[in-house]
Design a protein around this nucleic acid. Structure first.
Length: 455
RNA sequence: GGCGACGUAGCCAAGUGGUAAGGCAGGGGUCUGCAAAACCCCCAUUCAGCGGUUCAAAUCCGCUCGUCGCCUCCA
């Protein structure tokens, strides 16, 4: 298996450091509903995680909630509720969204506010060994102390200084020094520390939680590419300076960002579509195929057409898996192995999901072909289902209308008209069903009911 | 201004030296009471443009144009 690491800027052979693959993926700052850019990122890491497991590794997966920061405080103040209440609400919403997208839950979801002790320990350690300094109740990281600062973003301190919009803060020794611990203003949530009342800065919580839950050297650290600098860069210097051990993470993985129109979708730009909104129109398989149909490192543009294409594709896979096995024709068995092999080759090459998906569509065609000609498709269907569900996280679930008496009644009516060869009335009933949002198909084994396609 | 990425059919999108995957849409057919689904056939002599290296380039190099990301909160 090969993985592209941002740190080395190339594909590397994946060799875990221990028996258990350790993965840390940066989570959200919960102050508003998650949008489909978040969905993209977490679906990608979900598939990465599923595939690593599929490949036979044991793994431990941690994702944080950064549940204290300026925006949470602002938003909570505006709503007139406590910061922790707001953060709790949106954390729960986030998990609900992930469940709806069929994203497997992490083994641990630590929260910044729940790990203050560890955070203080790391900050104190950094002060003790000279990498950080206290000023006026806040603590800053001394970037000039680290020779390789910028190694992840592939920049140097000097190049970052040139033309950068950097606010000069008097307490800082160097403009690029960043906050580890922030002295709190009156009325803000705060915790007692050796430097007075305050709260963690952004970045430090991830170092602390990663160290606590996964150890000093982890295998994979991931997140959106907008986190490369400064977030992940700073995590590296904090962690490595604290432990004295390198590398903090062996493989740094970053997904491209979802664009809406010409800009990336982001909370601060306000150009977003929430996961909840997307799920009103499309199921999780559609959203997952939309995401997985392009490579995770490339930017992805949101468009209605792309969503509809994904929906049609998802539908085709689902239908294929639902095809009936023809009576055991062992002489004429479809062998899924070549397709399975292609799928694995694609995934082994830095999680090339578009190519893996292509092999699944090829397999689906072969299954339909074989089914049409009466060959044994049981094995092939099993493989298709396994790869789609276990690795790509598709549900391939059909909608049942058994429990809907209105629809059942219309179906029966239409069956009667058809028996009488009263096609006109039969078609009228079909139209009624269409108005209810369902399409019907006459098959040799009976009537098939499906949700009407959105056009 | 600095750093980086990208530009492949109507749309989305793989492919990093050997002659263009896949999905969607579209056209034609088989099947069907009609449909739908499924299947078959067709749909880029060409990969932003211009030069160069090579027996051979979408793939390597240079330049030009365009787009995006990061440098500030962000998945």
């Amino acid at each position: 298996m090969k993985i592209y690491s941002t740190l080395s800027a190339k594909k590397e052979q994946f060799v875990p450091q221990g028996d258990e693959v350790t993965i840390y993926v940066c989570g959200v700052t919960p102050y508003s509903d998650a949008h489909i850019g978040h969905a993209m990122s977490y679906i990608i890491f979900d598939v990465i995680r599923r595939y690593i497991k599929f490949a036979g590794y044991k793994l431990k997966f941690v994702q944080n909630f950064t549940d204290i920061d300026d925006k949470i405080i602002d938003r909570a103040n505006r709503k007139g509720i406590a910061a922790n209440e707001l953060a709790q609400f949106y954390s729960d919403e986030f998990l609900a969204d992930m469940d709806a997208l069929n994203v497997v839950r992490a083994d641990f979801y630590p929260r910044a506010t729940g790990e203050i002790d560890k955070i203080i320990e790391v900050v104190q350690g950094l002060i003790d060994n000279g990498y950080a300094y206290e000023a006026d109740g806040s603590v800053y990281f001394r970037v000039t102390k680290v020779a390789d600062y910028g190694k992840l973003a592939h920049r140097t301190l000097d190049s970052m200084m040139a033309g950068a919009r950097i606010e000069i803060e008097q307490d800082k020794e160097h403009p690029m020094d960043f906050t580890l611990w922030k002295a709190s203003k009156p009325g803000e949530p705060s915790w007692t520390s050796p430097w007075g009342e305050g709260r963690p800065g952004w970045h430090i919580e991830c170092s602390a939680m990663s160290l606590k839950y996964l150890g000093e050297k982890i295998d994979i650290h991931g997140g959106g590419s907008d986190l490369i600098f400064p977030h992940h860069e700073n995590e590296i210097v904090q962690s490595e300076s604290f432990t004295g051990k390198k590398p903090f993470a062996k493989y740094w993985m970053h997904n491209g960002l979802l664009q809406l129109g010409e800009d990336k979708m982001s909370k601060s730009l306000g150009n977003l579509i929430t996961i909840k909104d997307a799920l009103k129109e499309y199921n999780s398989d559609t959203i997952r195929i939309f995401v997985l149909n392009s490579h995770y490192r490339s930017p992805l543009k949101y468009s209605l057409e792309a969503f509809q294409a994904a929906q049609s594709g998802a539908e085709r896979l689902r239908r294929t898996v639902e095809r009936e096995d023809s009576a055991g024709n062992a002489d004429n068995r479809l062998d899924p192995e070549p397709y399975r092999k292609l799928f694995i080759e694609a995934m082994d090459d830095d999680f090339n999901t578009p190519q893996a998906l292509a092999s699944l569509f090829d397999l689906a065609r072969a299954v339909n072909q074989a089914a049409d000609s009466g060959s044994d498709i049981s094995e092939a269907k099993k493989v298709l289902t396994e790869l789609a569900q276990n690795v790509l996280g598709l549900r391939l679930a059909s909608v049942s209308y058994e429990e809907n008496p209105e629809i059942q009644k219309l179906i029966q009516e239409r069956a009667n008209f058809r028996k009488e060869k009263n096609w006109k009335e039969a078609d009228a009933v079909r139209q009624k069903l269409a108005d209810l949002g369902v399409a019907i198909e006459d098959t040799p084994t009976g009537v098939k009911i499906t949700p009407l396609k959105k056009k």
